[in-house]
Deep mutational scan, measured.
Amino acid sequence: DFYRCHTCNTTDRNAICVNCIKKCHQGHDVEFIRHDRFFCDCGAGT
């Protein structure tokens, strides 16, 4: 499962994972996106 962060203006080409929300995007306006054509390269392994 992935998310888009409207606060940081993520686009259709990138998304964030749950670990990104916990570490970098906590309290931001995020939108849940189940699956799409992207991956998270944060290195958290999710």
Rank of each mutant, 00 (worst) to 15 (best):
D1P: 14
D1A: 07
D1V: 09
D1G: 12
D1N: 15
D1Q: 05
F2C: 10
F2W: 11
F2I: 15
F2K: 05
F2D: 01
F2H: 05
F2V: 03
F2Q: 07
Y3S: 05
Y3R: 01
Y3W: 05
Y3G: 10
Y3E: 04
Y3N: 07
R4W: 08
R4F: 14
R4M: 12
C5V: 00
H6C: 06
H6P: 04
H6M: 13
H6L: 12
T7E: 04
T7H: 00
T7C: 02
T7R: 02
T7D: 03
T7Y: 03
C8F: 00
C8A: 00
C8R: 00
C8M: 00
C8P: 01
N9Y: 14
N9F: 12
N9H: 14
N9M: 12
T10V: 10
T11Q: 14
T11I: 12
T11P: 07
T11D: 14
T11A: 07
D12P: 08
D12Q: 15
D12S: 10
R13W: 07
R13G: 14
N14K: 14
N14L: 04
N14G: 07
N14I: 03
N14H: 07
A15F: 06
A15I: 08
A15W: 03
I16D: 04
I16L: 06
I16V: 12
I16F: 13
I16E: 03
I16Q: 04
I16N: 03
C17F: 01
C17W: 00
C17S: 02
C17R: 01
V18D: 08
V18H: 15
V18C: 09
V18W: 13
N19P: 04
N19M: 07
N19T: 07
C20P: 01
I21D: 03
I21K: 05
I21A: 09
I21M: 08
K22C: 01
K22E: 04
K22D: 05
K22A: 13
K22G: 09
K23F: 04
K23L: 10
K23T: 11
K23H: 11
K23A: 08
K23E: 15
C24T: 15
C24A: 12
C24V: 14
C24I: 15
H25I: 00
H25E: 00
H25G: 02
H25T: 01
H25F: 00
H25P: 01
Q26Y: 04
Q26N: 08
Q26A: 00
G27T: 08
G27V: 03
G27K: 07
G27D: 14
G27E: 07
G27I: 06
H28M: 00
H28E: 04
H28A: 02
H28R: 02
H28T: 06
D29T: 08
D29P: 03
D29L: 04
D29F: 05
D29E: 13
V30A: 04
V30G: 02
V30Y: 13
V30Q: 02
V30M: 04
V30K: 04
E31N: 10
E31G: 05
E31S: 10
E31C: 07
E31R: 09
E31Y: 03
F32T: 13
F32V: 15
F32H: 10
F32K: 15
F32D: 09
F32M: 14
F32L: 15
I33H: 05
I33W: 13
I33K: 01
I33S: 07
I33R: 09
I33L: 14
I33D: 05
I33N: 01
R34W: 06
R34I: 09
R34C: 12
R34M: 06
R34E: 14
R34H: 15
R34G: 15
R34P: 15
H35M: 10
H35C: 15
H35P: 11
D36N: 14
D36H: 07
D36V: 13
D36T: 10
D36M: 08
R37P: 11
R37W: 11
R37I: 10
F38R: 14
F38C: 15
F38W: 13
F38N: 11
F38A: 13
F39W: 09
F39A: 15
F39Q: 08
F39L: 10
F39H: 14
F39K: 13
F39P: 13
F39R: 15
C40Q: 04
C40M: 03
C40F: 00
D41Y: 04
D41N: 13
D41P: 14
D41C: 14
D41H: 06
D41Q: 09
C42M: 02
C42V: 01
G43N: 06
G43T: 13
A44D: 15
A44Y: 10
A44I: 15
A44L: 09
A44V: 11
A44S: 12
G45S: 12
G45C: 05
G45K: 08
G45E: 03
G45Q: 07
G45T: 05
G45F: 08
G45H: 11
T46A: 08
T46H: 07
T46R: 15
T46L: 15
T46Q: 10
